[in-house]
């Protein structure tokens, strides 16, 4: 069965977001921006004014560092783009979404259904996962123009805030919905059925680790 394919704006309306189902394949049109720990820290912890108008300019936050360079004449060259794992940004995302009105968060691996229920659903937002990972060259083809790059002096190229105009950029996979369901957790549940079978015949390691023993007053043997 081939998944359903959808064309979506980077400033989507509530009806368009509500129509998305887990596993749909999405291609994006419009402006998106990259923001990850560097941008979150600077904007939220150091309170630096965000250099673009959000969500007016874009409601799509890509957890991405592009393979890109700034040419000597000041223009940009962006080859490939792929996402970085999003779970590490859960610390900043609730405040970021509240401040910026982001409706689409794109990244690698998704968040937990707890995250989706706590701050995605109340913000009317869903999570899109990149594919692979990663289809960097395919996504690179979807870039129409690099409109701006902010904070590259302060954060370096990888952590800077890149503003990208995209056309038909994809594929992305819808990994959460407005019911707070999580595509990856659904798939984990399918795989969980097999775990006992593949582990059959093995025993826990002789030397334990903290984590396998949660009481730090305990010992690992």
């Amino acid at each position: 069965m081939t998944p359903r394919q959808v064309r979506l704006s980077t400033t989507p309306g509530p009806a368009e977001i509500a129509a998305l189902s887990l596993g749909d394949i999405v291609y994006l049109d419009g402006l998106l921006y990259t923001a990850r720990e560097g941008v979150y820290r600077r904007a939220l912890e150091e309170r630096s004014p965000i250099p673009i108008e959000l969500p007016g300019d874009s409601a799509t936050n890509f957890h991405c560092s592009p393979a890109a360079t700034i040419r000597k004449d000041g223009s940009y060259e962006m080859g490939a783009v792929t996402a970085t794992a999003s779970f590490r940004f859960a610390k900043w995302l609730p405040e970021w979404m509240a401040r910026t009105g982001a409706k689409l968060v794109i990244g690698k691996g998704g968040m937990t259904s707890k995250d989706y229920n706590e701050y995605f659903v109340p913000n009317g937002a869903v999570y899109l996962s990149t594919v692979g990972y990663g289809t960097g060259a395919l996504l690179g083809r979807g870039i129409e123009n690099v409109e701006a790059v902010h904070w590259q002096e302060e954060l370096g190229l990888a952590q800077a805030l890149w503003v990208i105009r995209c056309r038909g950029m994809g594929p992305f996979i819808v990994a959460s919905n407005l019911d707070g369901e999580c595509l990856f957790e659904r798939e984990n549940a399918k795989i969980a059925e097999n775990v006992a079978r593949v582990y059959a015949g093995t025993k826990p390691a002789v030397l334990k680790r903290f984590g396998e023993i949660d009481d730090r007053a305990d010992e690992v043997i």
Binding site: S65, P66, A67, A80, G132, G136, A137, R141
Partner: peptide, 14 residues
């Protein structure tokens, strides 16, 4: 195929 055709990196995380 696209990476080779365009001379782009395969993945954005290189």
């Amino acid at each position: 195929a696209v990476a080779k055709e365009d001379g782009r990196a395969m993945c954005g995380d290189t």
